[in-house]
Design a binder for these strands. Sequence first.
DNA 1: CCTTTCAGTTAGTTA
DNA 2: TAACTAAGTGAAAGG
Lengths: 266, 266
Amino acid sequence: VVNLEQNKEPVYLVRQPTVAEAASALQSAFSKHQVAVVIGCCKVNYEGRASSTLDWGDRLLTVKADGSLLIHRPRGHEPVNWQPAGCLLHAEPTSENELKLRAVRLQPREVMEVFFDKVYLVAVLNLVDEGEFALHVSEFDARRAILYEPSIVEEGFRPLSKEKSLGESGFIDIFGEDTQGNFVVELKRVPAGKEAVLQLGRYLEAIRGRVHRPVRGIIAAPSLRREAQILLEQLGLEYRPISLQRCYEILRFSNTRKIEDFLKED
Amino acid sequence: VVNLEQNKEPVYLVRQPTVAEAASALQSAFSKHQVAVVIGCCKVNYEGRASSTLDWGDRLLTVKADGSLLIHRPRGHEPVNWQPAGCLLHAEPTSENELKLRAVRLQPREVMEVFFDKVYLVAVLNLVDEGEFALHVSEFDARRAILYEPSIVEEGFRPLSKEKSLGESGFIDIFGEDTQGNFVVELKRVPAGKEAVLQLGRYLEAIRGRVHRPVRGIIAAPSLRREAQILLEQLGLEYRPISLQRCYEILRFSNTRKIEDFLKED
DNA sequence: CCTTTCAGTTAGTTA
DNA sequence: TAACTAAGTGAAAGG
């Protein structure tokens, strides 16, 4: 029933399929770990950690290559029903000429059944996606923002060496002075954990051996993990929360208004 | 460019569209609050509470009737990028013959831009979905089930106050008597953890200060976490497993057979 | 492998 | 509207 040509096309469509055609296309997609989209009128039953029922209506069903499943209504950006990756999938026609789709998750055992009354469209997709995903306002961006607007760390903070740049293991440090004139060591990271605190501690040790006046150690990060907080206090270090949103605004401002300053300094 | 026939069909397809055709079809779908699906090779930039970039790759993009937007990779059951309902949508061709899709959320301001290199398929959907969704066996439902069939907690258990309803922090408690005539405090939750046990402990403290006879504290829940079990014993509390499936059957029975009782009592 | 914590959490409810 | 809390939370990091 299923055209083998689907292997060569990025999108293989079956419009207004019979129940048998839809089941066949889906079974084929499941076995080949392809992405499948079903658009039609369906009802859904779920039983597992909780249980739910969804009455008849038009929905968009997506089965992904990893065996995850999503059912979307026309509104609401979250799926009304879903099943996470790795569940067992099976599609078959029923005696009442409906398309039955069963997705079983083991551990915890959760069973989802979808019954399609009408199937408007089945699309089997061969999607190639190796693109890298990156959540920005990285350490580097945060550093740029702090250098441009040091007050987000502390009022009166003045960075001194902008060229210390990357320490080992990807940390970026900023040296500077506070209002009392004490040297300040800066280290910031995205979600500061124990390693970040220990890293700063080791850094401070090294610096205190050379510099003969009090040195404060401050971690500037969007958040500080619970376990890191204890360690921070034990080592006598400080923490300063940094809003990534704020960094972002600073950078955008600096990019649009004072590009020349950055070209000179950085 | 866009065939007006799309209004009459549940699914209106544009295969291998030109950039102009795709943009036109999408703009039309946006204005009519239809659901649109785009399959193609794209890259994504997001800026808002955080910021992210996603390099080129084949993805499934869905725009819903309420202006929400989802971008799904071939794997992973969560969207790689998204935009919640109510954002401003715009689709247009770029000078580099790419399809640019812009989704702006106001408050907080978040901007997402999708660039399609190749568009394999645009589908505009007219989905009619009035089906009711019901999550069975929530805390409230479990409470109703226990009040209707108290023996699932303990043989001879008799609820006294059905109107205590929601305690602070969303917990629902049931007070009653057991066969020895002792007062019994009930607290049930879906997967009982430490917080639930501590909550019950605090509750019991308060009650023991007022009531001058022994009070048992029982947690009724589908399961009890390992760490919560230790705490439970330390505090001298009890645990009674509750089957959600059983609650569901009880409620279904009560709904079909004894609706009048519930109208009187609840 | 289990537990804890974070998330562009989202979504619902209450003050 | 803001604050709080639960979620079929999911996902990553720590022990």
